[in-house]
Structure formats: structure tokens, C-alpha cells
Computed example of a mutant assay.
Amino acid sequence: MNWLWGSKYTPIGLDIGTDTIKLVQLELSGPRPRVVALAQRRMPELDEEADEPQRSEQLKQAVAALLSESGVRGRQVTLCMNGTQVFVQNLRVPAGAEEQLEGIVQTEAEQRLPGEFGEVEIRHLLAGEVRGTQHGGEPVELKHEVIMLACRRRDIDSLIALAERLRLKPQGLDVPQCALARVVTSTMRRKSDEHQCLLILDLGASGTNVIVTRGQSVLMIKPLPIGGRLIDRQVAKRLDLSLPDAAALRQQCQDQPDQIEDELLRVVDETVRAHMEALGREVIRCVRYHSVTFRGSRIAKALLFGGEANQAVAGILARRIGITCELGDPFVGLELSDELRRRVRLRRVGMWAVVLGLCTKARRVAA
């Protein structure tokens, strides 16, 4: 993997998620990119009674502290929208309409976006050509599968304003689904990888992103509202706990199960399994949509990323969807010091995938 940049260092990748704030920076002067800054901290408990300027100031202080302790170089940054702020829709448009594609996507967005969405910024990905069949087996019109991505303008402006208040210099803005796909596809350089289809699952706090790629192309993106927060709420309800206490219990059940009472372990395990079974059913629908849309394109395996990805979850999903599920490692091909490697291993490796994708957004050149 070779990179061409105007600087020795990439812009800082900054991901302000639902539960955590993460940043990463790479150095590009050696034979392989090297991680020189990597840090994360929990999102601050924002005062629900505080007004927007006060909440913004709390968030600013948290990000400023993370920047200070991380040892980043420079002030250039690539930002990421929170997954809950991104509206995703797969569309079909007639083939040959490439010149009008932007207008078509804009019209579709006006029809499909919720009325309260407000002023938006819209982008699209061209997934590929598709051709359906009529009931008699005759082929129908060739069309393009398009992925529409929309974000509220006020959310974008708020994120950029936060960066500028921190004296950062935004160089790019991304969505988590594209950042994650970039990390995975950047390692696919062999000829045999060109047609390999992967199912990528990003299991986070607010939900799960389902992404299907083929070679370097993104074929499908589907956000699902099943994530860690939903599981924590159910655990809290069953055990009559506060949400923070339920989240802490679930974490302890994963890290130190021998120190938890059997009944508590049973409740947490049942709750996690029920939600992963539900997630599996939704993923199966996504796989079916892909197989019908892109005929003959078979998914080779699933890669799991995100803070909720672990071996137990991979096992449950593999049995439910009938596809081999592996935990993804976004640090493949990167150099890390022993200290940073130790820090990465303290938590789930997959949680760093999106923020690493932000580092490599601009001016990437593959060998």
C-alpha cells in the first residue's frame, strides 16, 4: 500500500460518535503508513437541561482534551458525520442518464426524505448496472443502482463550526459507511479481489450499518436501528437498572464474566442473543436484496467491525445468516508502536475502522 500526500502526515481523522470520540493520524514517510496518534474517550454526559451553546461547549472541551493528550501533528482534520445524521436510500435510474443523474437523485431525495429533514446536502454512489426480468423471463430495461446519501445542512455546519472553534482546519467531510468501506477495500489489490463480494457489518452504539462491496465498489448500504444502546435499554428494563449501570454490567459480562452472578449473566446473554437474532433476520433481507439486484454476485464472507463486534456475536450471526463471519482488523498493513498496539488491544480492534478510513480519505493513490 503506497500513498501520495502533500505532507508527511495525514490529516487527523476525527470521529465524534454516539458513545465515544476517536481520533487517529498516520505518518506516510516510511515503506508502510505508521500510526502516530491514536486516542479515544467517552462522550461527555451532556446536560439535558443545558441549552445548545452550553452542550456545544461541553463537547468542545472533550474534543480539545483528546487532541491535547494524543500528540497529533498539525491542525488539518477530516471529519465524520454521526451515523444517525445520514439518510441512505438505494435508487434505480435508467441507464444512459448519467448526465442527468445528479438531478434525478435530487428529485428522488425531495420525494423520499422526511418533511422535517430541512435543507440538505446530497451525494450519491454509482453501485453498478442491474437488469431485472419480466414474469415471462424476458429481460427488462437496463438500469443503474445508485446509493443516495443525504445529511442535514445544519448538522454539517454545526460540525464544521466545532472544528473551527478548536482551531482545526477541515480538509474533508465523510460519512461512516464510506469511511469503513475505504478501509476494507484499500487492502484488496490482487487480481482475484476484483470480483470478490464482502458483507461488512459495522455494529455500533446507535445501530448497525450493512455494507456490501465488490472489489473497490460499494454495492449497497443499509443502516439498521439495532445497536448497543438498544441492548442496554432492554437490559436496564429487565433488571430495573439505570442505562449507565446496564451498559457497565454488559461490559463487565464480556470482560469479567467469572465475577458476575449467574442470573445476571443469563439475562444479559438472553438479551444480546435476542437482538443479534433480530439483526440476523434483517441482514438476511439485505443479502437477498443484493443477490436479486446483482445476479451471480455471491458474498464470500462477512467482516464485523465496530464497538459491539466480538467473537460471540460473530458466532450468533454466522449461524443465523449462513455466511462465515470474521472480526475485521482495520490495522492490516499499518505499523504501530508497541505502546499503541497495546492500547488498541485493550478495546475491540474494530472500533477504530471508521476513524482510520477518515485519515485516508483525501488524495489517496494506490500502487
Rank of each mutant, 00 (worst) to 15 (best):
S7C: 06
T10Y: 05
L14R: 02
G17A: 05
L26A: 03
L26G: 00
S29P: 02
P33F: 07
P33R: 08
R34L: 05
V35W: 05
E52V: 14
Q58D: 11
L59N: 12
L59E: 12
A62K: 06
A62Q: 06
V63I: 13
A65G: 11
L66R: 08
L66H: 06
G71C: 12
G74E: 09
V77Q: 08
M81V: 00
N82A: 15
N90K: 07
G96R: 10
A97W: 10
E99D: 12
Q100A: 13
E102K: 12
I104Y: 06
I104W: 02
T107G: 01
E108W: 02
A109F: 05
A109L: 06
G115D: 07
E116C: 00
E119Y: 07
E121M: 06
E121V: 01
E121G: 00
G128Q: 08
E129L: 07
E129W: 00
Q134T: 08
H135V: 09
G137N: 05
E138G: 00
V140A: 07
L142E: 09
K143A: 12
I147G: 01
M148I: 03
D155L: 04
I156Y: 03
I160W: 08
I160N: 04
Q171I: 00
D174Q: 03
Q177N: 01
R182K: 03
V183W: 01
V183E: 07
T185Y: 02
M188F: 04
R189P: 00
S192L: 08
D193F: 07
E194M: 07
C197A: 13
L198C: 06
I200R: 01
L201G: 03
S206N: 10
I211V: 13
R214F: 03
Q216R: 05
Q216E: 08
S217V: 01
L219Q: 09
M220S: 04
M220R: 00
K222C: 00
L224A: 03
L224R: 01
P225I: 10
I226L: 12
G227V: 04
D232G: 06
D232V: 09
Q234T: 14
L239N: 06
L241D: 09
L241V: 08
L241P: 07
P244S: 14
R250A: 13
Q252R: 13
Q252I: 03
C253I: 13
I260L: 04
D262M: 09
D262W: 05
R266D: 15
R266S: 15
R266G: 08
D269S: 15
D269H: 15
T271L: 09
M276K: 04
E277R: 15
L279W: 06
G280F: 13
G280I: 11
E282Q: 14
I284W: 12
H290M: 04
H290T: 01
V292S: 11
K301Y: 11
L303Y: 09
G306Y: 03
A309G: 07
G315N: 11
I316R: 11
I316D: 06
L317G: 03
R319A: 15
R319N: 14
I321R: 11
I321F: 05
I323R: 13
C325D: 10
L327P: 05
G328H: 08
D329K: 02
V332P: 05
V332T: 14
G333N: 14
G333M: 08
L334N: 13
E335Y: 12
D338Q: 14
D338A: 13
E339T: 14
L340K: 10
L346R: 15
V354K: 04
V355P: 05
V355F: 03
L356R: 02
C359P: 02
R363V: 01
R363S: 11
R363W: 07
R364F: 11
